[in-house]
Design a binder for these strands. Structure first.
Lengths: 191, 191
DNA sequence: TATTTATAAGTGAGCAATCACTCAATTTCA
DNA sequence: TGAAATTGAGTGATTGCTCACTTATAAATA
């Protein structure tokens, strides 16, 4: 790794850690620079602004995750297998870089509106899979967005509570449970 | 309503709306005062600081919701009935004052650590109900925190996506589905 | 190879703007 | 008239960001 790339990476990691511990608004450029062992001015050699640095970090994870989820579910045929592939992929992403994952999780509401239209999107991947399965008659037809939200919530809320420290350990340890639970949500019978 | 009480209520509502639209950190005291048709100094007759105003709003909803959920589930005997009571109560709270609800939802991570120990807590209510049901053999024994998170996620993620505008309409319209889905999550069979 | 030149990377004092909060003066109203 | 409520210009502290300058690295030249 070149010197410049190393500095940029250090800045990103320092910012990420602080953004999660406090928040983007409450983290100062001075703090980021200190944590990266660099002068404040150096930040602006690599990023046009603090906000852009925050957005860059978010978008990279957001789009990377979306693509990974898309590829993970593709080989599977039936909905049940697709769900398990998606859940496993998601949990592995979370466990691999928990700080980046937590940052993405806690800052969706501030950045989601800035995601370019048509860009890869984790939610759309899940939504499309569910929509397909409804058309194929694998699960009852319902409001797709509602059902997708509930199914996603099974995993995402667990992840959120891990961020809050309500429980510990790898998310990946519970892939089977998450997949079973998400499937159960999607398969709820109409009455 | 007295004049002073009216001013305080207007300030709270103005702050709430702005906190949801932007965020606490990005909302200025000047904006709050303007939105409440009041001078900036007036804020400090009713609140010691902007942060305390933000915390007051959060805690009032947090504890009110916790008590309401606790009372809602008490009369019910079986887990299935308790779940439905909790879900219905939660959705009604959300629909009754959506702005306050959205504020609570989006700012959990900043305020949850400041909740006084032993104070009424929505999550604890759900956790206890699930824990009881496990002891009674109504559902399989599992990591209570994990299972509670997933069950809660079924409803909370749907609420979150409504905040993001991914779908519209009252949450209460889907109480039956949420309750069925949460139940399905809790009842997932061990293998 | 040794020396000069060019470029990239890094610095930190300082600036303009903004913010939460204060308080002396003014208005409201019983 | 007097206490309570309200006002908004003012204050000190903080912030994101700039920029003239230094240092490190690489390229070119003799």
């Amino acid at each position: 790794m070149g010197k410049a790339e190393d500095t940029k990476a250090r800045l990103e990691r320092a910012a990420l850690t602080l953004f999660v511990a406090r928040s983007v608004a409450e983290t100062t450029t001075k703090e980021i620079a200190m944590a990266a062992s660099v002068a404040e001015g150096t930040i602006y050699r690599y990023f046009p602004s603090k906000e852009q640095l925050a957005l860059d970090l978010f978008l990279r994870h957001h789009q990377g995750l979306a693509e990974a989820l898309g590829e993970a579910q593709r080989p599977a045929k039936a909905l049940r297998a697709k769900i398990e592939a998606i859940v496993r992929c998601y949990c592995e992403w979370a466990d691999r870089d928990w700080t980046l994952f937590a940052y993405h999780l806690l800052n969706q509401h501030s950045f989601l509106i800035q995601v370019p239209d048509g860009a890869a999107n984790p939610v759309t991947v899940v939504r499309d899979v569910i929509s397909q399965a409804m058309k194929a008659g694998e699960i009852p037809r319902r409001n797709v967005d509602l059902v997708a939200a509930s199914a996603i919530g099974v995993v995402m809320q667990a992840a959120t509570y891990k961020v809050y420290g309500r429980f510990t350990g790898d998310l990946s340890d519970h892939v089977r449970f998450f997949a079973d639970a998400a499937w159960a949500v999607l398969a709820v019978k109409e009455k």
